[in-house]
Amino acid sequence: MTAGARTWLVTGSSAGLGRAIVTELLARGETVAATARNPDALSDLRPSPPSLLWTAQLDVTDPERIRQVVDDAVDALGHIDVVVSNAGYGLFGAAEEATRDQVERQIQTNLTGPIHLAQAVLPHLRARGHGRIIQISSIAGQGAAPGMAVYCATKRGVEGFFESLAAEVKSFGIGVTIVEPGSVRTSFFDRGKEVTAALPAYAGTPVAALRDRVEDGRVSCRGDLAKMAGAIVDAATRPTAPLRLALGSDAYRLIRHGLTARLAELEEQKHIALSTDTSYA
């Protein structure tokens, strides 16, 4: 993407990584359309000039509202160059424990919300012949963990969708980056989390151990929020968009271990894979 001031749209801006990204952008003199379920949480941000910040209420589970906010942001600011799809939350607990409503809400927020956002912004980016979509995923998009099955499902889905999207829109001059942060102290483990009702059958299992750490606030977080926000903004302004961006030493370690293990398992099964071809292939 060319140098110079850009206009950004950031969802989930009230706290955590979204808030840190908005703060970083304003410090760099960029124009930001910041959305949140409660935009009043952004009232203490007072950029100079004030025109650098435009805010709107947005719940990403509402597809019609997504389109309206995107169109309103373009009308107010003239255009959008970079979209940071950050809104999301964590659901902790065993897959069996999650209620139907919890599953649906997690999927609507973490997976279908980003899909609808991409659909809403793409016509505007295509019309300009350039742009970036930054989708916040997680190390859970590359490696699963007990006690986070539904959350991991949404992040795996996000990665598949945006990897495919990247290939679809490259010819339009639009880059796509999937960000995979490791652990970082945000509201994700505090007010931003949801925990399932525990079933006695899972007592003493890894699910229960994770639940205890999350509920007690004993989750170890290595990442520096401001540094991650800076790295995301830097990546979005590179001439070529990286498809994936891992942030944090734990993300690097866990993703590398997972990919290495999967590759080793694939090689062990090579003879089976080849043996199932048709004889005339």
Rank of each mutant, 00 (worst) to 15 (best):
P63R: 04
P50Y: 12
L45K: 10
V74T: 11
V74K: 08
A87W: 07
D62V: 01
F92I: 14
D62F: 06
D44A: 12
Q57I: 03
A87I: 00
E96M: 11
R67H: 14
P47M: 08
I107L: 07
A95Q: 13
V69W: 03
P50R: 13
V82I: 14
Q68E: 15
D44H: 11
P63K: 03
Q108I: 00
P50V: 12
G93S: 14
N86D: 10
L52C: 03
G90W: 01
E96D: 14
D59A: 00
A94T: 05
A95V: 09
G93W: 07
L111Y: 11
S51F: 04
L91F: 13
I107C: 05
T55K: 05
E64F: 06
G78A: 09
E97V: 02
D59V: 01
L53N: 11
Q108C: 03
H79G: 05
F92S: 07
R67F: 04
D101R: 15
R100C: 06
A94R: 08
A73P: 08
V82W: 08
T55Q: 08
H79R: 11
G90V: 12
R100Q: 12
V84I: 02
R100G: 15
T55W: 05
D101A: 15
R65V: 00
I66E: 06
D71F: 01
P47K: 13
N86A: 04
V82N: 01
L91N: 13
I80R: 02
P47Y: 12
